[in-house]
Simulated scan of single mutants.
Amino acid sequence: MSASQHSPIAAEFVDPLAPVLIQGMTGRTGRTHSQHMRRYGTNVVAGVSPESDVAGVAGIPIFRNCAQAVGETGASVSVAMVPPLAVLQAIEEAVGAGIRLVVTVAEGVPVHDAVRALDLVRHAGARWIGASTPGLAIPGRLKLGFLPDVALAPGPIGVMAKSGTLSYEICHRLAGWGLGQSLWVGVGGDPVKGTRFADVLPYMAVDPQTHAILVIGEIGGSEEEELADAIVTLGCHKPVYALIAGRSAREGVTMGHAGALIQRGIGTIDSKTRALTAAGARVFTRIQHLVEAIAGDFNTATGDRACG
């Protein structure tokens, strides 16, 4: 799929032409990644920094608050590059100003803040990607966050991932086989989050540019089991490939992500594997086996694909 053949369904999830504001833009992270996003093609139109006297960054105007930024630029998407304890306030301000999609990248957002944020965005009818996420992308069109360009390529695979690092590695390898992404959503590994696997599936299941779905999960919680239920309920017949990380994790010990916690047998790799397999997905525990299976099914040597 070329960059011009963007997915109409992915555009329903996030408009690739949407005007974007960056909260915390005058900080080091905000300055750096706002320019990376803009160079990628993202329509970054404003920054927000309540305590800064900077008028602009790289030609992008800076406003004191989201309401001013939205009023002047019509921004409908926010990427909040603020510290974890400032995430709830950033979401409140963004949604209060009419922002429809908020992406938050900070690790370590308190769970009670995430609970309040989730309630807030649901009542507002907005979408939240986070608490912690590397972002999302429609490759060749839009990048929100800091997904690495080297792993992004337009293509037929819809990607939803808890782990940023694993998704970078897998997507980079698949891109080397000529298999890019139609939509890439980093849902993050927090126990309380704005968007879960089952929320992304309805878009990928009907998207004509998405020919297969790649799920990068991990032990802990019930998100993969929820996805398995959704696959069956929706009657999704597209090939689903899943990598479940964390086989060596001990019960009661958090492994990496706050949500990667097994307690009393809940959230085990076996329970997730059983649920996804029963729903028709192919489940892997090694990256190489996963990549080889996808590449083989798409028959990349001849350019044909074995999925509909």
Rank of each mutant, 00 (worst) to 15 (best):
E51D: 07
S52C: 10
D53V: 08
D53H: 11
D53S: 14
V54R: 14
V54Y: 03
A55E: 15
G56W: 05
G56I: 14
V57W: 07
V57K: 02
V57C: 03
A58N: 08
A58K: 03
A58Q: 05
G59Y: 10
I60M: 01
I60C: 03
I60V: 15
I60K: 08
P61A: 04
P61W: 04
P61I: 01
I62N: 03
I62C: 02
F63Y: 15
F63T: 10
F63R: 04
R64W: 00
R64I: 00
N65Q: 06
A67F: 02
A67M: 04
Q68Y: 06
Q68H: 13
Q68F: 01
A69D: 01
V70Q: 08
V70H: 05
G71I: 00
G71R: 06
E72P: 12
T73Y: 08
T73K: 08
A75T: 00
A75Y: 03
S76N: 02
S76D: 00
S76V: 14
S76L: 07
S76W: 05
S76R: 13
S78V: 07
V79T: 02
V79E: 09
M81D: 10
M81E: 09
M81A: 13
V82M: 13
P83T: 14
P83C: 12
P84L: 05
P84M: 10
P84N: 09
P84Y: 11
V87L: 01
V87F: 05
L88R: 15
L88M: 12
Q89E: 15
Q89V: 08
Q89F: 04
Q89L: 06
A90E: 08
A90H: 04
I91C: 04
E92F: 02
E92P: 08
E92Y: 11
E93Q: 08
A94L: 04
A97W: 05
A97I: 05
A97L: 07
A97S: 08
A97R: 00
G98I: 13
R100E: 13
L101F: 14
L101S: 02
V102R: 06
V103P: 02
A106D: 13
A106V: 14
A106C: 09
A106P: 14
E107R: 08
E107Y: 09
G108V: 10
V109C: 11
V111A: 12
V111L: 15
V111E: 14
H112Q: 12
D113Y: 09
A114M: 09
A114H: 06
V115D: 06
V115A: 10
V115K: 11
V115S: 06
R116F: 03
R116D: 11
